[in-house]
Design a protein around this nucleic acid. Structure first.
Lengths: 341, 341
DNA sequence: TTGAAAGCGCTAACAC
DNA sequence: GTGTTAGCGCTTTCAA
């Protein structure tokens, strides 16, 4: 049970063949090279001895470790666990596994983790940390490091990514509010150095236009992080603007929570006084008080597809770069209602 | 930037010394063996060439990989991310890292992941998956595999664990309700094959006793998993028992959520009709409707301490086995009030 | 189809 | 102090 002391040699000895032959017999890709009967004998010996190949030794030899580096801002952000599971499940299905690292949005940490993973000979990367202008990503791409982005993309899309259609997402959010009769809608945006921040901001403008609504630029603010605190701060700017609005579309659920806080602070009630729409549909936001109307994104699928895309590139490095745009979906709950009472 | 083609040899050549010397100079533990000046020269050459040691090669040689296997039921259970971050942060601080795997409470998967990690030569394990009677843990311990349990423990504690004082936790929960005037308190327990399930159940009985309250055994049920669904099912049994009760203490927050569902289902209001107390203080349960009164456990510290304990064992394998019992804390919110209107 | 031999990048006796 | 040597467990030419 302890450290596998049983090696290829042991199996070879037991089966009366050369270690090289054992290697060939045990590797599905090379099994064809070996006589069917010998192969069976080797396999039998292997199982009998309880042989477990040593992935490190293999990796050292082949420079392929069967692992993928996954960089994300912070695992405790509820957005990420489902994405990670999606990644892990797909990787596991092909016998690979993920190496996780949290970067806390720190570019230096990010680079350090990236390099440490490279040293560990990961076969590729999945990044949930990309900024719109991201040196690390740029360098990795020119260096030919297999990589796919998830949730966020970079400017000048030469890198495969699995992201959500934010234009559509905002269309759903704004359309819903407009349908309810809201005319004065504010946007609590995300950091503009992130594709998600800018994408939803653009989506907001586009959707307002489509609905025939005027955007009051004082009612478009950008939080400097996708956190509740940052959301609170930015929401305060909205309320301090002196402009009138009856609804706010937040660029993500955490921001919407920050908005909830400000509402409570000022004795305002949601949705009676102000309707709020979130983005992401994080776990449990449906059970908040009030249940958050939000744009659902397929978390798990984002991760799973990103992993698939990466596997694809790993198998076929020269294939065309493809990205995936997943469709969001509106989930209407209690935080939105018709305006004015 | 790409694959590190620069090896010990390269550095050696550049510095005009033997690779062995480079190895010694670069390893803090053996640096003392080498002349100060040579060491400096080597270091300079290493940085100049951008040398990155290959952890795989080192691991192969030393059988120590600098990684720790972490088995947990499911990363998307909000309980775990903070624990995992605690583990990762501590490991990272000593240059190690974690390999995660989700087992979905499947013993077979668990064993398989365990073995695959062993094959990857992890230096030790942190398990959040232990059952009270756990063959895998038992075998690993006799095999001398360094391991520490987190959150859950096993029967016959011969294995280091970092857990929460459930007796105290239940004392807080029951005491709070008793203080509010509740006399008829139900327990929505967890699976009894888990130390957390049984521990909180025992804590419930003990605390009721301490408060001078009688336990109605019909009002003590056990869910068969720590999930919202299982909680709902079990809570239904409570309400179908025909017994009178004004409060329920759930063995965890997810179970409490299941209870919320049943309440809603039956047109009951919390806390007016029934007070509910949870356990764990998962992220965001304070924002539920109603905000959940619960017993807070120090998630992050659980993970961090588990990692520290493991590092301790790794450094000093023969040291005494120690476990840690962390103190919980009551967080009173809106789901509890005095009984009877 | 199988054996022989070299070597992935590193560490650790052992010698000098 | 530093060089030499062997080898961790595996894959993969190259011969046979």
């Amino acid at each position: 049970m302890k450290r596998t002391p049983v090696t290829l040699r042991d199996v070879a000895g037991h089966a009366g063949v050369h270690p090289g032959t054992v290697s060939r017999a045990l590797n599905p890709a090379t099994r064809a090279m070996v006589n069917e009967r010998t192969a069976r004998r080797v396999l039998a010996a292997a199982t009998e001895l309880g042989y477990r190949p040593n992935p490190l030794a293999r990796a050292l030899k082949t420079t392929r470790s069967g692992t993928v580096g996954v960089l994300l801002p912070d695992l405790t952000n509820p957005l990420f666990p489902p994405i990670v599971r999606g990644i892990e499940d797909v990787l596991e299905s092909v016998g690979m596994s993920a190496l996780l690292a949290n970067t806390d949005n720190d570019a230096e940490r990010e680079r350090q983790q990236f390099e440490s993973m490279q040293a560990r000979q990961v076969d590729g990367f999945i990044l949930a940390t990309a900024r719109r202008h991201d040196d690390l990503v740029a360098e990795a791409i020119v260096a030919g490091v297999p990589m796919v982005l998830v949730n966020r993309s970079v400017e000048g899309k030469k890198v495969p990514a699995v992201i959500v259609d934010d234009l559509e997402g905002l269309r759903l959010a704004v359309g819903h509010l407009a349908g309810l009769g809201h005319q004065h809608i504010a946007h609590l945006g995300g950091p503009e150095e992130l594709s998600t921040g800018i994408g939803r901001r653009r989506g907001f403008f586009a959707a307002m236009e489509e609905c025939g609504l005027k955007v009051d630029r004082k009612l478009v603010v950008a939080a400097d992080a996708f956190t509740e605190i940052a959301g609170e701060k930015a929401a305060r700017r909205l309320f301090d603007s002196g402009r009138r609005f009856t609804a706010v579309v937040a660029a993500n659920d955490l921001l919407a929570l920050g908005c909830y806080d400000v509402l409570a602070d000022r004795g305002l009630t949601c949705p009676r006084d102000i309707s709020v729409v979130g983005y992401n549909d994080m776990p449990f936001v449906g059970r908040l008080d009030p249940g958050l109307t939000t744009v659902r994104i397929p978390h798990y699928a984002l991760g799973a597809e990103a992993a698939r895309l990466l596997l694809d590139r790993l198998e076929n490095p020269t294939s065309m770069i493809k990205s995936l745009l997943l469709a969001p979906e509106l989930v209407v709950r209690a935080s939105t209602s018709a305006p004015g009472r």
